[in-house]
Amino acid sequence: MDKIQLIMICFSFVLLLFIIILTRFNRIKVQYSLIWLFSGSILLLFSVFRSLLDTMAQFVGIKYAPSLILLIVVFIGFILGIHLSIIISKLTEENRTLAQEIALFANRIEKLEKE
């Protein structure tokens, strides 16, 4: 077993454990932990089953198989980043609507209190 393979197995394992702990203590909501758990599982799968990695690497034409892991990590990183941008945009939009509603309601309450 390569050193890099051992490192990757540890890394994926710790990542999965960390996400599960965070979710367990409500620091990450279950729906947002899914994408992490999925990514972590893929990493773990490829690190444990070296042959799977070798086959895949050969298939896409990468000579040094572990660098495929790196590629996968980068790829997952991108997807996660985009995923977060989507969530932030949604939150910004909702935040804006809420703030506007508060301003409009405050105005109505003020008017009612005057009457």
Binding site: N95, Q100, A103, N107
Partner: peptide
């Protein structure tokens, strides 16, 4: 004068849209 207070700073777009929502209501 009618005054609407936004609870957070939203920038010009959000502020104007608040005015539009008031006008539509």
């Amino acid at each position: 004068t009618i005054v609407l207070n936004l609870p957070i700073n939203m920038g010009i777009g959000g502020a104007i849209q608040t005015g539009f929502k008031y006008a539509a209501n």
